[in-house]
Computed example of a mutant assay.
Amino acid sequence: MRKIVVYELLSLDGVAEDPDAFIVGWDDDMDAELGAVIGTQGDVILGRRSYDEWSRFWPTSTIEPFATFINGVAKHIVTSTPLDGRWANATAVDGDPVAFARRLKEGDGGDIGVHASISVARTLLAAGVVDELRLVIAPRIAGAGRRLLDGLPPLRLETIRNVTSATGYLLVDYRIAH
């Protein structure tokens, strides 16, 4: 069975919204972590807001390795409205995103990534279908914004790895204990 891996950029106080406000540098350790995460993924599930923002940015971006990955991977967009077709390999998720994620996990392929999409990540975490949570935690307090873990039921996490990057970011990988 495939794994669902949530990868999020957070401030120290748990804010995931608008990471450009608190991710002020990117170093080689963070690049290696991102490369390891996306190197195993064959599909990505995104929310509509992330799709709308990313479909305007990533198709012409040269920021590697993520641009090549996100432009080429199969993207499943959780939305109630039709997509405009402007981004290659993007399809709308028809129906319940949790049921869709469960079906996708049963198929063949690499890991299934959830990137940036706070509400999708929360929904899948609350439903118990996420296998790993991989976080980049900035040494900054955002003070305000949507937090990734707000409103979730209690979850037990097992630490897989924790490293401090050269510029002070915490790279923490957790397995969700089911």
Rank of each mutant, 00 (worst) to 15 (best):
G110K: 04
L10I: 02
L46F: 12
E132M: 05
T68V: 03
A127P: 03
V37I: 14
Y7V: 10
L124I: 02
F66H: 11
T79G: 04
N162L: 15
I137E: 00
E33H: 13
S165A: 05
V163P: 12
Y51G: 05
A67R: 05
N89Y: 10
D94Y: 09
L9E: 14
L34N: 04
P59W: 01
E53H: 14
D111H: 08
V130K: 00
W26G: 06
G113A: 05
T167E: 10
F69N: 02
W58P: 02
L10C: 12
F22R: 00
A144V: 06
N162E: 15
A99P: 06
G168H: 03
L133I: 05
V93W: 00
R2L: 08
R2H: 09
V163T: 09
I112M: 08
F57R: 08
R134D: 12
T40R: 15
N162R: 15
R146T: 15
P153W: 02
D150G: 06
D20M: 14
A90D: 06
F57H: 11
W26S: 11
L104Y: 01
G168A: 11
G95E: 00
V163M: 13
V44K: 08
F100I: 11
R2M: 01
D173A: 12
R2I: 11
T91D: 07
M30A: 04
D111R: 08
T68E: 11
G168S: 01
I4M: 01
A116T: 02
A67F: 04
L133C: 03
L125N: 07
D18Q: 15
V114W: 00
L10G: 06
Y7M: 15
T40G: 15
G35V: 05
R48F: 03
T60R: 14
R103F: 10
R156Q: 13
N71G: 03
I141T: 07
E158M: 12
T123W: 04
F66W: 15
L170H: 13
V172E: 14
P154F: 03
L149W: 04
D94I: 14
S165R: 11
F69T: 08
I137V: 06
V15D: 04
Q41P: 06
A90C: 09
G72Y: 02
D111W: 03
W58G: 02
T123I: 08
P65Y: 14
G25R: 12
R48T: 06
G107L: 08
L155Y: 01
D84E: 07
T40C: 12
V93F: 00
V37Y: 14
P82F: 02
T91V: 13
L125M: 09
F66I: 13
G168R: 00
T167Y: 14
R140W: 13
D18N: 12
L149M: 01
L157A: 07
P153M: 00
R103P: 07
A74C: 13
D173W: 08
R103Q: 11
W54K: 03
